[in-house]
Design a protein around this nucleic acid. Structure first.
Lengths: 253, 253
DNA sequence: CAGTGGTCTAGACCACGCT
DNA sequence: GCGTGGTCTAGACCACTGG
């Protein structure tokens, strides 16, 4: 099956092959550590090393007390540019934000937990993009977005406080789209710049999103600009790789 | 520093804190396994478990014989939509592809190794997007894109053979942009759909791109469409997370 | 309660890189 | 050659999950 010299590689290759070949399908449980240890005549630690590698590759999942299973993926589509074809969707709702619409289009249940606060010292990433001096007051809207009761994204939006003072944006309960709200108070966003980085989650992010080991995330940073080129809003979203496909529709210019 | 009950978590937290605090900077080497083992009064295996976790988080890098170091990131910008502001770049070259231009703009040296072949059975992902029947002949252009001699991306383009028969596209040495070439033979792409997935690399991808353990990748799929809505081209790019930031510039419609 | 995975130890040998 | 990390074993105890 494989000519690996390392024992744990042989065990791992064996299972990888079984998964690729279809002997083990999504959701199936794989042999126990003890079984694999006997079958390959290696110590349990060596088996564990193999299994850890597969876990890190995102192929299997574990859990104390439960048998390990082959991991399943059914990612949600996240549409980041609204191409004309999507404008006709039945569930489109101009007052809600596009994300909720997107989720409902896919027959799943969106939900957002919002928390608003004021900060003087936002992360460097934010102050650079908002082009503000240190000490400028900033409003942060921290959202945990859930789908079918499961945490799906962490989405933090940052605005200069002066701009949104006294508006609904400061209300934690408000569920409307910040983009729409900015427009309604005379600050429409006419251009976006999106930056996407791919990395492993921080410990904190992994906890809050209940990420299985070996689940990478995308860090999606959207900066919204006004007509005159000033930046109005920065939104940083942490997107677990196992639950999302990000989609852009573009016109070739 | 931390109140973790697991020993390896304590060791890991300790190092994480040192990195966050700045005691250990990018590129610094961290204490050896033996040292950490003594300092925390745990076995070497426990130390290794902690270090493996940090490696998996992308915080440190290892290598047989060498001391482990704190990992450094200096990602390259990859511009996926050409916003007007970029049209003015001095190095813009209509004959080359946008990627090479991008890299040169950042004072680094691009290079591409191209390999062209014909296949009857492309991956499902491709046949679905090209909307072709099984058995349709497909041209594949497999490229390894390097920057400063280091492999940076795997970019595979797929075309229906009938469309590009006898053109330069079939020449392995050709370095011009397939997009430009498609246009020159009467098949301009007017629209793109990009899908971005985030996952851990396959074993094969990790090898070809010399990925350090704990490096996730983005799988970027671009489908190009003609005026009449038929798909002309599918390009699948494997993008290591430690070397890239993907950038989209959008007009709010 | 039996079986699973999770943590931890002590000790061994090997492969590599540097100086 | 010495110190580094990489692989492997044998055995122990704990924590959780399921029937």
């Amino acid at each position: 099956m494989a000519d690996a010299r390392r024992l744990y590689e042989k065990v791992a290759d064996d299972l990888r092959a079984a998964i690729a070949k279809g002997d083990l399908r999504s959701g199936d449980s794989i042999p126990s550590e003890a079984e694999l240890s006997q079958q390959h005549d290696v110590s349990r630690q060596t088996v564990r090393q193999a299994l850890q590698q597969l876990t890190q590759e995102g192929l299997i999942t574990g859990g104390q007390g439960r048998a390990r299973t082959v991991r399943t993926y059914e990612p949600l589509e996240w549409h980041l540019s609204s191409y004309e074809s999507r404008a006709s969707h039945a569930t489109r709702d101009p007052s809600g934000d596009q994300w909720s619409v997107d989720v409902q289009d896919q027959q799943r249940k969106p939900q957002q937990d919002v928390e608003v606060s004021l900060v003087k010292q936002p992360p460097d990433i934010v102050s650079e993009r908002l082009a503000i001096a240190p000490g400028t007051l900033v409003v942060v809207r921290r959202r945990v977005r859930l789908v079918d009761e499961i945490p799906f994204q962490l989405a933090d939006s940052y605005f200069v406080e002066e701009l949104v003072r006294g508006t609904l944006l400061m209300e934690p309960g408000d569920q409307s789209a910040p983009g729409g709200l900015l427009a309604s108070i005379g600050h429409p966003q006419v251009r976006y710049r999106d930056e996407i980085r791919v990395r492993m989650p921080l410990k904190d992010e992994a906890t809050r999103l209940h990420l299985a080991p070996g689940t990478p995330v995308a860090e999606h940073i959207r900066t919204g600009y006004a007509e005159d080129g000033t930046s109005l809003r920065v939104m940083i979203t942490i997107v677990p790789g196992d639950r999302h496909v990000m989609i852009y529709e573009l016109d070739a210019s």
